[in-house]
Nucleic acid binder design. Structure first.
Lengths: 110, 110
DNA sequence: CTTTCTAATCGTAATATTACGATGATAAAA
DNA sequence: TTTTATCATCGTAATATTACGATTAGAAAG
């Protein structure tokens, strides 16, 4: 128990859920906004922007990386993070699709 | 420990994270798709559509309701669930905004 | 080499999530 | 009233998440 029944769902739903999960914590949303704001890549000043410890930020960065939304390039001592364009667009598309599928029919009950 | 530092984040980030969290499980994505597909409201046949127990589905429905994305109206013995139009559009807007803020600048490094 | 800086990882504690069976509540049907 | 059907909630077990301090690994600086 306690584990998601992965095999029970479609690939699309699993993928969308993965992207959504990456956005499912305010710290990760904040990190993404920092990366989006400065179109140039940002290293670990993210830690200074947020009231979280370095290890916690690093953990959130890892999750964003595992979801595919960001990439990290080692640049000497520092590590440069940025949005992964392809994954970002893919996530955007999946989100657009599910949200748009409502406005298509329009009428609802309840 | 173990608890999110809610006070550390902006209202927008917290709200977006809440909506994202609702989409962060494939079962909930699947439930939303069922509700989206049939533009008429659906009751608990959702349980039959998914390979999950009734109590598990009910729990997921509760989370979707708490996130605000769906509403549930009691209709005799059955309960009729459907998308909450306002919240849906709000979530759509927040998602659109954060995703669109990338394509605006375009160029990235890494 | 040693120190320093940056960032990942480890270890751990608190809390949250996921899933299910069992039980409870309410409304329709008998 | 008793039964049946529908759905929520409780209780519980397994697992995952969140957060932090401490440690580790690697590169640059001294």
């Amino acid at each position: 128990m306690g584990t998601t029944k992965t095999e029970a769902f479609t690939e699309a739903d699993l993928t969308l859920a993965t992207y959504a999960k990456a956005l499912a914590h305010p710290a990760r949303v904040a990190i993404l906004r920092i990366l989006l704001e400065r179109n140039s890549c940002i290293c670990g000043d993210i830690v200074e922007e947020l009231p979280l410890s370095q290890s916690t930020v690093s953990q959130h960065l890892k999750e964003l990386k595992e979801a595919g939304l960001i990439k990290g390039d080692i640049d000497g001592k520092k590590v440069c993070y940025c949005i992964d364009a392809e994954a970002w667009k893919h996530a955007q598309l999946l989100m657009q699709q599910i949200f748009a599928s409502y406005t298509l029919c329009g009428t609802s009950c309840c």
